[in-house]
Design a protein around this nucleic acid. Sequence first.
DNA 1: AAAATTTATATGTCTAAACATATTTTCGAG
DNA 2: CTCGAAAATATGTTTAGACATATAAATTTT
Lengths: 230, 230
Amino acid sequence: MHPYEEIRTEILRRINSQAWPAGFALPHEEKLAEEFGVARGTIRRALSPLVDAGLIERRRRAGTRVVGRKAHSSTLTIPVVRHEIERGGHAYGYKLLRSSLGDDARDDQGLFAGAPLRHIVSLHLSDGRPYQLEDRLVNLEAIPEARDADFSTVSPNEWLIARVPYSSVRTILRAEMPGTNDSKYLKLQRDEPVFVIERQTRLDGNILTLVRMAHPAHGFQMITATDDFQ
Amino acid sequence: MHPYEEIRTEILRRINSQAWPAGFALPHEEKLAEEFGVARGTIRRALSPLVDAGLIERRRRAGTRVVGRKAHSSTLTIPVVRHEIERGGHAYGYKLLRSSLGDDARDDQGLFAGAPLRHIVSLHLSDGRPYQLEDRLVNLEAIPEARDADFSTVSPNEWLIARVPYSSVRTILRAEMPGTNDSKYLKLQRDEPVFVIERQTRLDGNILTLVRMAHPAHGFQMITATDDFQ
DNA sequence: AAAATTTATATGTCTAAACATATTTTCGAG
DNA sequence: CTCGAAAATATGTTTAGACATATAAATTTT
């Protein structure tokens, strides 16, 4: 364990044990450097992830303070469906349900501003059972290669994620009563809702793709990784 | 804009423009330092968040490569309910429904290993309408002050988050058909599902609190912040 | 007493250099 | 030709120092 890690751990311990409670002003960098017998740079290195995580706050001249938390943050990772299913030890299946071209398809929100689109509906299966219904619009102006890509064996999800770089992602999570397509393809039980993940992917402001991924609620859950320290 | 930021932006541009496609080996640090006219440390500073974000991968002696993505990651922030509602410009309301002590309460999963518990059920309202049903178990061994805390005006959610430090959080998201309590308190429409957030909060392995937060699905959604650059 | 100015100070950025360490490549022994 | 040891190399950690900059605190001016 490197000095910067030990120092970070020790400072975390002090915060978590309330020895340094919310609002407490930490000794300044030079003092901490002296206490731990290292250079100032090493102290900065130990502290900066705590700043990023919002555990402490720093202001020039004012110093560093322990922050009282106001929210829980965690990282939500959405893997390629196939990986998710296979990692769970299940057999992955995939079926292309619909593929069409057009510029008026389903752009309810006018996000694509009339750009040519490809609309793909596909189904992901786990052990033969419907797992996710993927309904996707792809901006062909931004990703022209997607016009002729073959999505009958590889899902657009997987095709895109590896191939197309993006700079921002907006993910929306919802519980919904199933729509017509959901009921048709997901083999839902009576009164069973769907868990919907909707995602907009952008590159420098231009929207690349918009996708709605619907899961049968029963047995489906999302778990977020804990943004923690050790 | 500082040199390290400009360099990071330029490198991102090269990755996003596919000038440096997935698998591409970046020039090594000394070369980049020379190219940008800065010290090696500044190059490291520019690159390290890209490593954290999984955009590039580095191995000693082998160098640095652009990574083809395998998943979408984003940060899910769950604020205190009151803040969430007030930020939306709505009136916040709160009602304590039930509060009891005991060690056998509802610990279905045996997470608390027989520790004394406090069980609190409360309702959060937005403009007078039910917004969230909070059902919480608090470990009194870890947080003895919670035994006598008054949750009739301040929700346990808010009381805990500011007061009690934690080291890890596990959040589970689900769509569910409403249970008895959900139907009773959330004024659900016919066939309306609930969006459930379940959270376990720990400090150094010890579970502090377990909470189930149920939202009427209609009009509720979670949006994740985009883990992006610039 | 209030407002404007100056000073002090803690954090923020950057450098240049040394050394540590994982891993690949090279080279030599068998 | 194979295996193992040695060398080479890119990244990883740390230092000590210089300078930049935001802002709190002290001082002067109004």
